[in-house]
């Protein structure tokens, strides 16, 4: 009796916790978005009828997709160098890559305020070498948000990709060369497809992270670069429009899941072994 149900018994506390603290609140939150007296989808119609909110949605998608692409590219190159390094150096490089993760998101975003501000390091440097005569306004631009988020997420892509690249057997790469594939062809036809599982994991982490980011766009992007996260905070905490905030949350959940599914489908086409 006990043996047959042992699995359930062991899993019960965690399952209950997930149901009570995650599934029920999320269901309740999403439930309220369908409770509008003007119709089932009135809250969503509200959202999409507002040009401002549509703009925020597009901007968020744009920022997070660009962030994902740049983070994967930079992370891949770095991970490749790390994976090829000899043992001792490799550990050092991995520690260096992970180091930024030891400080909080807010602190790291603040660093960009110092760097990109009117009197910031970058502006002082540009003026000093004579590229510009007066400081550029770099803060509160889309570029600033993307730069800060790439900085935030590259360590994650490095970590996920180092593991995958290390697991590509050396003799498979050598087999490719022996069959006449140039280094570029080996990269494109062997290494890249075999790295796809890592690229997916990295893409999902970066995309979900940057799509739902709040602190970084708030600090570096401000009001001018409002994204879904900051918009949702504003609706809930400034306007006390809880249904509006829940609607934004629901849209974010659906979009995140859609993009993640699209990514893994794309991956399967590149590498039939990727799940």
């Amino acid at each position: 009796m006990l043996k047959r149900h042992a699995g359930w018994v062991i899993a019960a506390p965690a399952t209950l916790a997930v149901i009570i603290f995650l599934v029920l609140p999320v269901a309740a939150t999403i439930g309220t978005t369908f409770g509008d007296p003007d119709g089932l989808f009135a809250a969503y119609a509200d959202f999409f009828n507002s040009g401002f909110r549509r703009n925020v949605l597009w901007r968020t998608l744009e920022i997070s997709l660009i962030t994902t692409a740049i983070s994967l590219f930079v992370g891949f190159l770095t991970a490749y160098v790390v994976a090829k390094s000899p043992g001792r150096l490799k550990s050092l490089l991995i520690i260096a890559a992970v180091f930024p993760l030891l400080t909080g998101v807010v602190v790291r975003s603040f660093a960009w305020l110092i760097m990109l501000g009117k009197n910031g390091i970058l502006n002082n440097f540009l003026v000093a070498i004579g590229v510009t005569n007066e400081p550029l306004s770099m803060l509160y631009t889309q570029g600033a948000v993307i730069a800060a988020m790439v900085y935030l997420f590259v360590p994650l892509t490095i970590l996920t990709l180092v593991g995958v690249l290390e697991n590509i057997p050396e003799d498979v790469v050598q087999a490719s060369a022996s069959l006449g594939a140039t280094p570029a062809a080996t990269f494109r036809q062997v290494i890249l497809p075999l790295a796809v599982p890592g690229l997916i994991v990295g893409a999902v982490l970066v995309f979900t992270g940057s799509f739902t980011a709040y602190a970084t766009p708030q600090l570096v992007g401000g009001e001018r670069q409002m994204v879904m996260g900051t918009l949702m905070y504003q609706r809930a905490m400034v306007s006390f429009d809880w249904v509006g905030a829940s609607t934004i949350a629901a849209i974010m959940v659906v979009l995140t899941i859609t993009v993640v599914l699209a990514m893994s489908r794309m991956a399967r086409r590149l590498n039939p072994m990727a799940t």
Binding site: P169, D171, V172, Q174, A175, S176, S178, V190, P193, L194, V196, N271, P272, M273
Partner: peptide, 11 residues
């Protein structure tokens, strides 16, 4: 070349 571990392209 024929390798000890076959070294086939798994994908």
């Amino acid at each position: 070349l024929v390798f000890q571990n076959y070294a086939l392209f798994p994908h």
